[in-house]
Computed example of a mutant assay.
Amino acid sequence: METKLKVSTKKRLVIGMSGASGAILGIDMLKILSDNPEWETHLVISHGAELTISQETGYTIDEVRNLADKVHDIKNIGASIASGSFKTEGMVIVPCSMKTVAGIACGYSDNLLLRAADVTIKEKKTLVVVPRESPLSSIHLKNMLSLSETGAIIIPPMVTYYNKPLSLEDMNRHIIGKILDKFDIEVSGFKRWGETVS
Rank of each mutant, 00 (worst) to 15 (best):
K182L: 04
E56M: 08
N163D: 14
I74V: 14
T88E: 10
E38V: 06
A79T: 04
V187I: 14
I153C: 08
A49C: 07
G90V: 02
I53H: 05
I121T: 08
T100F: 09
S21F: 03
S137E: 12
V159D: 06
I179Q: 04
K6V: 15
P95A: 05
V71C: 13
V44S: 08
E89A: 14
E38H: 09
K70C: 14
S34V: 01
K182I: 05
V128K: 00
M98F: 05
N172V: 11
T60K: 04
G84N: 04
P156T: 13
E123M: 15
I45T: 09
V71E: 08
L127S: 09
I104V: 15
C106V: 00
E89G: 02
I27L: 08
G78C: 11
G19Q: 03
K125C: 04
Y162A: 04
E56F: 10
V7W: 04
L147V: 12
V14S: 07
I154W: 08
E123H: 07
I104Y: 05
L112V: 11
I74Y: 00
Y108F: 15
V92R: 02
S198N: 14
L67Q: 01
K122P: 01
S146C: 05
Y108V: 07
T120D: 02
E133N: 08
P165E: 09
I15K: 09
V14Y: 00
G103P: 00
L113K: 02
V44P: 03
I153H: 05
P135V: 13
L43T: 11
G103N: 12
V187G: 03
V94K: 00
I179M: 13
I176G: 09
T9E: 13
V129D: 02
F190P: 00
S134M: 15
D118A: 08
I153S: 07
V159I: 15
D62W: 01
D62P: 01
